[in-house]
Design a protein around this nucleic acid. Structure first.
Length: 216
DNA sequence: GACCAGGCACATC
DNA sequence: GATGTGCATGGT
């Protein structure tokens, strides 16, 4: 099975090359994007982040000074905007109360300590926590998302009823704990998912078409 | 106009 | 522990 994940990585790499993830200039921008992209189109998230940048609101302190209702209006394009305004505020409160608004201070903790703490923030679930840990804080944890599950499921690498933690363990127990490669692997899976692996199969030009059995 | 998008919390059984 | 539901805009 280790060889299969290596083979999958090679195939994705050959098809797409380096993805350069996460798209974001600072750890805070990455963390914010992780919350905003929950069940949302990344293009909309990118627009909102660009707008926040233009308004000079893209820092923990300035965002903290913005009323939640105003933040919600800015967040409209990403969907679930009231919900996400609250979730962003929850994360900001967490960062302020424990780390003096500093992502650098947050990054000083280690993975085993930080993950449960992030999960205590309302609105930060397993995927968001792992995205922040891997892409903003450079901790060696693997990010599982809907694409990851769909792709591995479609190629019959995991069970239908595989949970988030099980799928994550499936990966991490079979791959060396490398931050750069975890970053790249997840990004490549998302790339494949966006371009080819729709909820309903049927794309003959998918680079993985026919790999471990056709799924047309 | 349907379907989809880089989830999560909460209620209920 | 599994399943169902609300949250919501914008792209294809």
């Amino acid at each position: 099975m280790d060889e299969i994940l290596e083979e999958l990585y090679q195939k994705l790499w050959e098809a797409f090359g380096p993805q350069g993830w996460w798209p974001g200039e600072t750890p805070f921008e990455v963390a914010l994007g992780a919350i905003l992209t929950q069940n949302a189109n990344w293009n909309n998230v990118a627009r909102v982040i660009k707008l926040l940048k233009e308004k000079e609101l893209l820092s923990p302190r300035s965002l903290r000074g913005l009323p939640e209702a105003e933040l919600a209006q800015i967040l409209r394009p990403v969907g679930y905007y009231n919900l996400k305004a609250r979730r962003v505020k929850n994360f900001l409160d967490f960062l302020h109360a424990n780390y003096q608004d500093s992502m650098a201070r947050l990054a000083q903790g280690d993975l085993e300590e930080l993950r449960p703490r992030l999960l205590m923030v309302r609105g930060v679930g397993p995927e968001t926590a792992d995205s922040i840990l891997l892409y903003a804080l450079n901790k060696p944890t693997f990010v599982v998302d809907a694409y990851t599950f769909r792709i591995l499921r479609r190629h019959d690498l995991v069970e239908e009823a595989c949970s988030y933690e099980e799928l994550k363990e499936f990966f991490m127990s079979r791959r060396p704990a490398s931050v750069p490669q975890y970053k790249e692997y997840h990004a490549l899976l998302v790339r494949l998912g966006k371009d080819f692996c729709r909820p309903r199969p049927g794309c003959t030009t998918c680079p993985l078409n026919g790999w471990r059995g056709p799924y047309l």
